[in-house]
Design a protein around this nucleic acid. Sequence first.
DNA 1: GTATTTGTCGATACAGTGTATCGGCGAAGG
DNA 2: CCTTCGCCGATACACTGTATCGACAAATAC
Lengths: 245, 245
Amino acid sequence: MSTGRKPRAKKAALVWERPEPDRRPAPAPLSREGIVQAAIELADKEGLDSVSLRKVGAALDAGPMRLYGYVATKEELLGLMVDEVYGEMISEGRIRGDWRKALRALAHRMRRAAREHPWFIDLLGGRPHLGPNSLAHLEASLAALSDTPGFEDIDAVMLAVMTVNAYVIGAIRTEVSELRAELQSGRNKAEWQTATGPYLQRMIATGDFPTLDKVLRDATHPSLDIVFDKGLECVLDGIAARLLR
Amino acid sequence: MSTGRKPRAKKAALVWERPEPDRRPAPAPLSREGIVQAAIELADKEGLDSVSLRKVGAALDAGPMRLYGYVATKEELLGLMVDEVYGEMISEGRIRGDWRKALRALAHRMRRAAREHPWFIDLLGGRPHLGPNSLAHLEASLAALSDTPGFEDIDAVMLAVMTVNAYVIGAIRTEVSELRAELQSGRNKAEWQTATGPYLQRMIATGDFPTLDKVLRDATHPSLDIVFDKGLECVLDGIAARLLR
DNA sequence: GTATTTGTCGATACAGTGTATCGGCGAAGG
DNA sequence: CCTTCGCCGATACACTGTATCGACAAATAC
C-alpha cells in the first residue's frame, strides 16, 4: 500500500510539546521472583481476583506484556505462586518426631499457610503441582514417614500421606469458606448469624430438617481450631488402626 | 438539553430495510430452573470457564441482562448449579444401613456426582451452601448416622460427617486435578507421562528426592478408585476407633 | 564509518467478561 | 384517546488475558 501513512500520531511535531524521552523510571530489573512476590502481595491484600497481569505489572512499573517474557500464561504465574507458598512451608524447618507428630506438623503447616494466604487453597488442586518446592514438600512428607517404624512399606507411606493430605485440603476449604462468609456479609460472626439466621430458622421451621435442627440446638459448636484438630486426630487414628493390622 | 438528538440510528427510515418487527422466537418462557439447567449443560460440555451469562443466555435465545431477572449475580447462578447437583445426589434415594455403609454411600455419591460434573468440585467450598438441596443432603447425612447405635451423641455425628466430608472433598479435588492433567496434555495417560516424565526424571536425578524416587520406582500405583476407597476406609477406621473409646 | 539485518519489547488491538444505566415500549389509569 | 408509570433489555463501560506487529537498539556485514 503506498498511501503515505503518518509516521506516528502520538509524537508532536515540535520538541516543546514532547515532555521528555518518556523517562524510564529505571531499567526495571524485573525477575520471575519479583513478579511472583508482587502477585502474592496483591493476592494477600486484595484477593485472588485482583491478581491481573495489568495490576501485577503496574506494581512493578511495567506494562502487562512485559510479564510475558517471564511467564507464558497467567496459569503459570498462579502455579509459581503456589510453589512459592510451598517454599514457605518447607522453610519452617525439618519435620521430626514419630509419624503421628510428623503428620500433625504437616497438617498444621498447611493450615497456617492457608491462613496467611487465603487464596492458596483455591489454587490447590487446580492442576498438579510439579514445582521444585512442591516436590520438596512432598519429599519431606514421605521421608518423615518412611523413617519411622511401621512404615517400611512404601505403599503404606503413600496411603497415609495422601489420606491426611486429602483431609487437610477438604477441611481447610470448608473453613476458609466459612471465614469468607463471615468477612463478607458485614464484619463479625454475630452479624452473619443474624443475616442468615432468619432464613435458616424458616427452613428449619418447616420440620424437614429435624436432625439439623438438633445439631443447631444441642451440639456444642467448638472453635474451628478444635474442629480441625479433632478431625485430624480421627484420621490419624484410622492410620494407626491400619498399621497394627 | 435541546439539541435535537436523532430518534434512533439503528432503525432504517424505509420499511424495506427493516427486516421484520424483530421476530421474537417465542415469548421465551424462561425460568430459574431452565437457566440453571442450561448453565449445567454448558459446564458439562464446555467446562466451567465457558459458563458466561452471555452464553447461557444465548442457549435460551435471550440476552445477558434477561437473566438478571432471575438471578442477581453470576455467583448466585453458580450457587444454584451447586444446589442442583446436590439435588441429583439426594434423588438417588435414601441412605440406609449401618453407619459405615451410610458414610461410604455418601462418599461415593459425591464422587460420582463430581465425575459427572467435573466443575462441581471447583465450586464446592467457594461459599457456604445454604440451598434447600444442600441442606437436605446435610440432613440426610446427619440423619443416617444419628439413627445408628453408637451415635447418640450429636457431636459425634457432626464430627464423623464433617471429617468424612473433608476427606472426600480433598480426595476428589486431587483426583480431578490429575484427570485434568491427563486430558489436557494430549489424550491418554501414557502421553502425559512421556510429557512430564523427562522433567520429573531430571529432578529425581539430582538426588534431592530419594523417597519420591522410591515411590515412583517401587510403589504399586493402584487405580484412582482403589486409592479413594483405601483412604476412605482409613478414615472410617478412625471414626470406628473413636466410637469404641 | 555506514548500511543492513536481526531480534526483542511493549503499545495497541481484540475478543471476551460481568454488570450499571436509562431510553423506549407496553400496559394501566384517566 | 391521551397520559403516566414501571419495567425490561439493548447499549455502554470498565476490565480481563493475550496476539500482533511496528519501532527501536544492538549486532553484523561491507
